[in-house]
């Protein structure tokens, strides 16, 4: 089944490769020569650039690879013939999800290796920073899967909107002390939105050479929560 799925995903994979090039060209950290920037800035810029770019690439990859993966089948009726064969829909979509995660992480790993080699001629940022990419890929993979199982269309767009909304909200919370919300409401909104703060905590811990297991587990749990909900919808919801 995997070769068939890969063949079906070939255009999306090509788009992901293209996105990798765009990310490489667009990331200033990969084009600033340390000799031209103050040492302490360069030290921060390199891991910051590479880790967040990889995380964003993996997120974009996950959302793009999963866009409409359940919703389109339901809406267009492709499931009718497909699931008349001895196939469990949950296993089929589960495989597609895992394959997408593997491809997104593979794209991140390639970027981690080749972007550093191309920009700096050597590896300066260790592979541990891929953890951040993995967490965001699981978070947005879970969210996209949930929307795809629930809605007839718009799953990927909603995931992207949530991404920017969360960034906007965190900026607002950090920079506007006069938000018209009580601390409890703020905390509730931050809890419901994707755990960007937790992922940042993981990044900061990696910078200091450690791993923020609690934050990582929280982010992972958040993504898996939506993924399990998507799985329940696939299993128990009637087909149109």
């Amino acid at each position: 089944m995997i070769p068939i799925l890969l063949r079906q995903l070939r255009w999306r994979i090509a788009a992901l490769v293209l996105a990798g090039f765009v990310f490489y060209l667009g990331d200033p950290a990969l084009h600033e020569h340390p000799a031209e920037t103050p040492g302490d800035v360069a030290e921060l810029l390199e891991p910051f650039g590479i880790s967040f770019t990889i995380a964003n690439l993996a997120t974009v990859g996950m959302v793009a690879l999963l866009a409409g993966f359940i919703a389109a089948d339901r809406r267009r009726g492709y499931y009718r013939l497909a699931f008349s064969h001895p196939t469990r829909p949950l296993a089929f979509y589960g495989l597609r999800w895992v394959l997408s995660l593997a491809l997104a992480m593979l794209a991140g790993a390639f970027f981690w290796l080749f972007a550093q080699l191309a920009a700096w001629g050597g590896i300066r940022v260790g592979p541990s920073f891929l953890l951040q990419a993995l967490l965001l890929a699981v978070v947005y993979g879970g969210i996209t899967a949930f929307f795809s199982a629930l809605l007839p269309r718009g799953d990927a767009i909603l995931a992207v909107i949530l991404f920017f909304l969360t960034d906007f909200w965190l900026t607002l919370v950090a920079e506007s002390p006069v938000l018209p919300f009580t601390p409890g409401v703020r905390a509730a909104i931050s809890f419901v939105l994707p755990p960007h703060s937790a992922v940042s905590d993981v990044y900061n811990a990696l910078l200091s050479g450690g791993v923020a297991w609690g934050a990582a587990a929280y982010a992972l749990g958040y993504g898996l929560f939506w993924l399990v909900l998507a799985g329940l919808l696939v299993k128990y919801r009637e087909w149109p």
Partner: peptide, 11 residues
């Protein structure tokens, strides 16, 4: 499995 041909063939 079931050998099935749907009314609206969606592929």
């Amino acid at each position: 499995g079931v050998a099935y041909v749907s009314e609206l063939v969606a592929i």
